[in-house]
Amino acid sequence: MNEELRRHYERWVYPRYPLAASIPPWDTYALNLDALYARFNGALPGSHARRILLAGCGSFSPYPTSLANPGVSITALDLSAANLRRARLHCFLHGRFGIDFQRGDILDPVAAQGEYGFIDSFGVIHHLADPLEGVRALERRLAPGGILRLMVYSRGARRGAESIRTALRLLKIGDVAAIKGLIRRAPEGSRFRRYVDASSEAAFDAGIADAFLHPRTRTYRIDEFMALVGDTGLTPLMFAHDGALPPVTEEVSRLRRLEGGGEETPNFILYLGRQPIGGCGPASDARLMLNPALRQAVGCLRLAPVVVVPRLGRRNPRLGFAEKRFLRRFISPVAVASLNPQELERARPFLDALFLVAFR
C-alpha cells in the first residue's frame, strides 16, 4: 500500500462535497454499465461482466455510480478509510445501498478480486509511482469486452497548478492555512490570484491540499499518455473530455496541435476496452433501448426540457417534450427493422450521445 498517498487522503477527504449534495439520476447516464458495454461490444454484458469497480473511489463516486446502475454489483476501492467512511455515509443518506466498500490498493492483487465489466479510475493513476503498473493492474481485472475509463492530468491543463506547487516548495510552504493566507494577500490580477479565483478546488481546504500539496502528481502530454496506453493490451475507444472529437486518432491529432501551439488542453478522459468486439450501431438486426439512467427523465410529462450535462465531450440533444415522447418508445427495446427511415435518422443523435443503446 502506498503509505504516503494513504496518509494524505486520511487527512484530506476528497472531494469534500456537502453530504446533502445530490444529482438527478439522468445526469449519471455516462456511468451506466449496459450503455457503455453495448456501445463498444454491440451486446449487453453477460453475468460475468455485470460488476463495476471504482478504482480509487474517493468520497463521492459510489453515489452517482449506484444511481446509474441499480441492481448492479459495485465495488468501491480506496486507500483511505476516511474517504470510504464519507462515501458510505453519503450513499446512506441518499438511499444507496448494496455497495461493497473495500480499503485497499489497486496494485494489490488481493484487493477487488474477480473480473469487472466497467472499471472507473478517475484522477488516480497519475498519483502512482508507476502509472503503467497501475493501468496493467486494472487491465487484469477487466472481463473480456470490459471498459476502463481513465482520467489523467494533462500538461496543458495543470500548467498553472504545477507552477504554484513548484513555488510553494521553493518557499517551503507546506500547509493549507499558510496557502489560504497567501490567497487572501494575493493582488488582484496576479497569476496566482487568477488561478485560484478560477479554480473550484481553491474554495475548500481539501481542494487546496489536493491541488497544491499532493505528495505525488504526474502530468502528461498526449503522446506520453498514448504511449502509456500503448504499453498495455487495451484498445483506445473514445475520448470524453470537453471538446473531444469522436475518432481517437483525430482527437490525438487535435490535442497535439494545441500542445504545439502552447494552448491549454483539457485533462484527458479516455475509455479503453479489453478485447472489445465493436459496437453494432443501428444495424438492421439490432435493437435500440433507452439508457436505463434516463428513464426517469423521459418519463417526466412536464413541458420544461430536462438539462443533461454533456459527459462525452460534446453537446447533447435537448430533452424537451417532443424528444422525451420519442425516447419513451424505447423504454422497452425496439427492433431497428421496425423503424422507418425518418425515425432511424431521428434516433442517431441520441445514439451518439449514449441516450439510446444499440445491441444485438
Rank of each mutant, 00 (worst) to 15 (best):
A283R: 01
P276R: 15
L31K: 13
R184E: 14
S47L: 15
A43N: 03
R254G: 10
M238S: 14
G281F: 08
P70C: 15
S80A: 03
F118Q: 06
L148R: 04
G145L: 01
S338Y: 04
R6F: 09
M289H: 06
R141K: 12
M1P: 01
F350Y: 06
A293T: 07
T235R: 11
R16D: 11
I147R: 00
E250D: 15
Y17I: 13
L84G: 03
G146N: 07
I106K: 07
R311N: 13
D108T: 03
Y29P: 02
R50T: 13
S154Q: 01
H214S: 11
I52T: 05
E115C: 12
E162P: 09
A209S: 08
R257P: 04
K172C: 14
P282G: 09
E263L: 02
P282M: 14
I331C: 04
L142N: 04
F92Q: 04
F60T: 12
V13S: 01
F40I: 02
R360E: 05
V306Q: 14
N83K: 05
A87C: 11
D223F: 08
R50M: 10
H94D: 01
D197H: 06
Q342P: 01
G189A: 11
P109T: 15
R103G: 13
G181W: 00
P62H: 02
I147F: 04
P310R: 00
R257D: 14
D231R: 11
R7P: 01
K172M: 14
R348E: 05
G98Y: 15
F60A: 03
G117D: 07
P62R: 09
R85K: 05
T232W: 12
S66D: 03
H90R: 12
T235F: 09
I173S: 01
R11G: 14
G160D: 11
G230A: 15
A137K: 12
T265K: 03
I52R: 00
L93A: 05
Y271Q: 02
G98L: 10
R329V: 08
L31Q: 13
D352Q: 14
P187W: 06
S66I: 14
R256W: 04
R140M: 05
A49T: 04
G146Q: 09
H8G: 10
S338F: 02
I74G: 03
E343Y: 01
L354R: 08
L36V: 00
A87D: 10
T28N: 10
A82T: 09
P247F: 11
I99H: 07
I99E: 02
R51V: 15
V196A: 12
G58M: 15
F326Y: 08
A198F: 15
Y17A: 12
F192Y: 11
H94E: 06
H127A: 09
P15T: 00
D120M: 14
E250R: 02
L171A: 15
E3T: 11
G279E: 10
F326H: 03
G42C: 13
P15N: 01
G117H: 05
P292S: 10
R194P: 02
R7F: 06
E3C: 01
L312W: 03
P333Q: 09
I23M: 03
K180I: 05
C300P: 02
E251P: 03
D242S: 12
R11V: 11
R257W: 10
I179E: 10
L272K: 00
V135W: 09
C91P: 01
N41K: 03
I106L: 13
R85N: 07
R325D: 08
S59R: 05
